[in-house]
Each structure stands twice: as structure tokens, then as C-alpha cells.
Amino acid sequence: MRPFSYAVPATLAEAVSALAASEPGTKILAGGTTLYDLMKLDIEAPPAVVDVHRLAELAAIDTTRPDEFSFGAGARMADVADDPVVRRDFPVLAESLAKAASQQLRNMATVGGNLLQRTRCGYFRGGPAFPCNKREPGSGCSAIGGLDRGHALFGAGDACVATYPGDWAVALLAFDAEIDVIGPRGVRTVAVGDLHVEPGDDPQREHTLAGDELIVRIRVPVTPSGRGSTYHKIRDRESYAFALVSVAAGVAFDDRGVVEDCRIALGGVATRPWRSPAAEAVLIGERLTEATARRAGEQAFAGARPGTGNAFKIELGIRAVGDALRIAGERAGR
């Protein structure tokens, strides 16, 4: 690890000014589970970090409003996952967090920091033996033509096929969440759908926040389909693993049992959290059956572009979508 300077601002305002005054490359340290990890691997080498992990202003969880849940960016993953109201009224959110990492890591990692979690691509994390455009621009992408079982079916390009590894952002994307961001130019709101970017020809750029901006909170509109929701995650082992395929799904029915709202987003298969409006459209106005769920799944994976070792995730993903919709539908109650 390279030496770095370390600052712990006592207030949010101080954090913003510290970031504004810091030298280029300064990073925000929250739970540390991504940044400090990558610093240990010599992949991140910020000259300075600003530690916000104990800023009380970022810690609030507010589930009292009928129209919107709000999560301070500094809230711990475990706390949101265990929140009884979230578990009852918005299970997809709680499950996306509870099925990520381990309880120890969820006690450390924040829901804001988790959005910006960096890829687990082994070639990226593996260091200088492997060319990697994300780590070393212009060096190439080892995953293309390499071991790509865990790599993306969607949103990939010639420069990078690394998967966005998170779960929480997938759930948030499915339910139109927004984040409030603070920086020296003030506060702005960014839709989660506008937060992450595909690698294009600049895989180093993963999101649309500026280096001096800080996520303050995450806001999620409360909807009936949030109550009828699930986060379904298929992994290589039963727990403590990243997704092969994951599905955030939500369903709401009208009086006749016809689907009037449907949410489908995918994790583990794309370079960014991946929502499928086309798959959602398959179900809206239809009854939720095994057949319609299958059609939605097929639609969700219609544009998949597999590499050499990940094509199985198309059929797996179609089935996972079906299962997720079934679970969500049961919760929505027909």
C-alpha cells in the first residue's frame, strides 16, 4: 500500500470542504471494504482519504414517510437489511443487502459506499500479471477470450466485460431510487439509473459522480410492487459469494389479479445494474403465470451477448427471473 494522508472531518460540511481542497485522487473512505481492500492490493493508491464513516449526519434510516424511504449514505448495510419496516414493506431492499457479503462486512460497509463497489473481476484485482483496461488503461482486457464465467452478458464492450458486483444498486434501480449528492457546488439529485455507466472505451470511469462529490442519502419511492418484491440471487455457494445471476423483482396486481406494475432488474450479468423495461412490459396487463414469467425472463435476456464461458447464465437467468417473479407474486398476494 502506498502512503496516504488521513483526515476525519467531524461534520458533513467539513467533509465537503476537505474534499474540495484535497489533491486530485483523494478518496472518500466509508466502511473501507472496497477502498481499503483495493489499496491493500495496490490497485487504488489515493494520496489522501477523507474518512466519513462516523458522520452522524449520514447515518439516518427513515421509513416513516408513506411515499418514500430514505437511507443515509452512511447507514450500515446490516442495519438496513435488518430494519423491520424495510423487511416488511420492501423485502427486495432488505434481501439485496442481506444476501451480500457476510454480516461482518455488512456491519462495516455503508449503503452509499456499496453503490460504488468496484468489480470483482479477477484480472482487475489480480494485479500486474494481467492486462486490464480498468486498472491500466490501454493494456487490454484479459477477460475477453479468458476466464469469463463471471463476466457480463450486457453492457460490455471491447475494452471491458467486467461485471458490476453489487446487489443493492440492482434493487434500487428496479424501484426508481434516487440519490442526493453533495459537493462544493451544492446538492444535486441523481437517479440510480444515471449513476453507473457502461465501460465504453473508458472502463476506469464507472459512475457519474465527481471526485469531490459525496452521496448523502438514497431515496426510494414506496410502491405496492415494493411490498410484492424479492431479491433472488444464484451463487456458486449458498452464501458469502457474488452472484452468478441475481434478479430484483416486484409485482403489483389490480383487483382482477392482472399485473399492473412490474419491476425486473438483473445483477451479476452486466457491467452496471441492469434493468429490463422490455421484460417488465411483457407482464404488465397480463396474469402472472409460469408461462408469462418465462416469457419475461426470455425478454430480459434477449439481448445477451455471451463470451466463452458464461452463456449458461442466459438460461439460468431466465429461470431465475421466473422464480423471482413467482416469489414476488406470492408476496404481492393475488
Binding site: F4, S5, Y6, A7, V8, P9, A10, S17, S22
Partner: peptide, 18 residues
Amino acid sequence: ALGTMGSAESTIASACRT
């Protein structure tokens, strides 16, 4: 010197040692 901060509670550290 890297920057300034306004509060006495702020903790300052460095790669020197803290």
C-alpha cells in the same frame, strides 16, 4: 499541507503517524 478544516473536533492524521 493538504488543506484546512474548520473544526477543533476534526481529527488530523498523516502517513507520518497518528
